[in-house]
Simulated assay, not measured.
Amino acid sequence: MAKNIRQQMVPDLQHLRILVAEDEFFVANDIALWLERAGATIIGPAPTLREAMESLSSADDIQVAVLDINLNGELIFPVADELVRRSVPVIFYSGYDTMNVPERFKSVARLSKCAGSADLVSAVFEEYLQNLSTLAPAGLGVPDQSVIDLIPGLRLRARQLTPNAEAADYLVERTLERAIVSVASRCRSQPLDQWLHEMMVAIHLESPYGLN
């Protein structure tokens, strides 16, 4: 039962378009399968640096990238540079735990190939959410609260609504997933924390007994 609950708590990636660059066939297949099962659309997987660069040229709507650092002896950094230029969040998914990366990539998320499917999907979701920053309605360019800063408060509110810790965390995830989809309809005058808390209560009322 606990395993089933954890599986249900994997975030819905909401059809995010994710570039995957990986030279090992079976690893690339696993990554694509895990992310597609979570709702993502895969660009690639690209097994070489050249093919990854071609994917960048043909796709201008990439939202997250999962990149192996070493593709058949070529380092992925030119691809990462272009993605950073486009403000696309990058995750280095590599078996080289001790490999040095250039200083400009020190803040890029890194995940070991020993990580499982739930870890990868959660990392993709968190990086995308972090990149959204505020969930502010498009085109307004006005400073807003940070979603990441609001998560502790959301978790506390969720625990007030349901005493089960796993169900509470799932409620937070569902709230953030719905917020990403619904951001265009948010009234800009409403504080972000108030909007998210009201959304959480509405979701809880839809399913007051926890996971469904």
Rank of each mutant, 00 (worst) to 15 (best):
A2V: 14
A2I: 15
A2T: 15
K3T: 15
K3R: 15
N4W: 12
N4D: 14
I5L: 15
Q7Y: 14
Q7G: 08
Q8L: 14
Q8D: 11
D12N: 15
L13V: 13
L13H: 07
Q14R: 15
R17M: 08
R17N: 15
R17E: 13
L19F: 09
F25P: 01
F25E: 07
V27G: 09
V27F: 05
A28M: 00
N29I: 00
N29E: 01
A32I: 09
A32G: 02
L33R: 05
L35N: 05
E36W: 00
A38N: 02
G39N: 02
G39P: 08
T41E: 13
I43A: 12
I43C: 11
P47C: 00
L49A: 04
L49F: 04
R50W: 04
R50M: 10
R50T: 14
E51N: 05
E51G: 02
M53A: 12
M53W: 09
M53V: 07
S57V: 03
S57D: 14
S58G: 08
A59V: 06
A59L: 05
D60M: 03
D60Q: 02
V64I: 15
V64L: 12
L71G: 09
L71H: 03
V79F: 00
R85Q: 09
R86W: 02
R86N: 05
S87D: 12
S87L: 04
P89E: 03
I91P: 04
I91Q: 01
F92D: 00
F92E: 00
Y93K: 02
Y93A: 05
S94Y: 02
S94P: 01
G95K: 10
G95S: 11
Y96E: 04
N100V: 03
V101P: 03
R104Y: 10
S107R: 09
V108L: 07
A109V: 11
A109G: 08
S112L: 12
C114T: 15
A115F: 08
G116N: 14
G116E: 11
D119S: 14
V121Y: 01
S122K: 06
A123I: 01
V124Y: 05
V124H: 07
F125P: 08
E126W: 13
E127S: 13
Y128L: 12
L129H: 05
L129T: 14
L129C: 11
L132N: 03
L132Y: 01
L132I: 07
T134E: 14
T134A: 13
L140C: 10
D144I: 11
Q145P: 05
S146D: 11
V147G: 04
V147Y: 06
I151L: 06
G153Y: 10
L154M: 12
R155H: 14
R157Y: 01
R159N: 04
P163F: 00
A165R: 07
A165M: 10
E166A: 11
A167N: 03
A167K: 05
A167P: 07
D169E: 13
D169T: 10
Y170R: 07
L171V: 10
V172F: 07
L176E: 13
R178P: 09
R178Y: 13
I180W: 11
I180G: 07
V181R: 14
V183I: 14
V183C: 09
A184F: 14
S185E: 13
C187H: 08
R188N: 13
L192Y: 06
L192H: 03
D193Q: 03
W195H: 13
W195E: 10
L196I: 03
M199R: 10
E206W: 00
S207H: 06
S207M: 04
S207D: 04
P208K: 00
G210R: 08
G210Y: 00
G210V: 06
N212E: 12
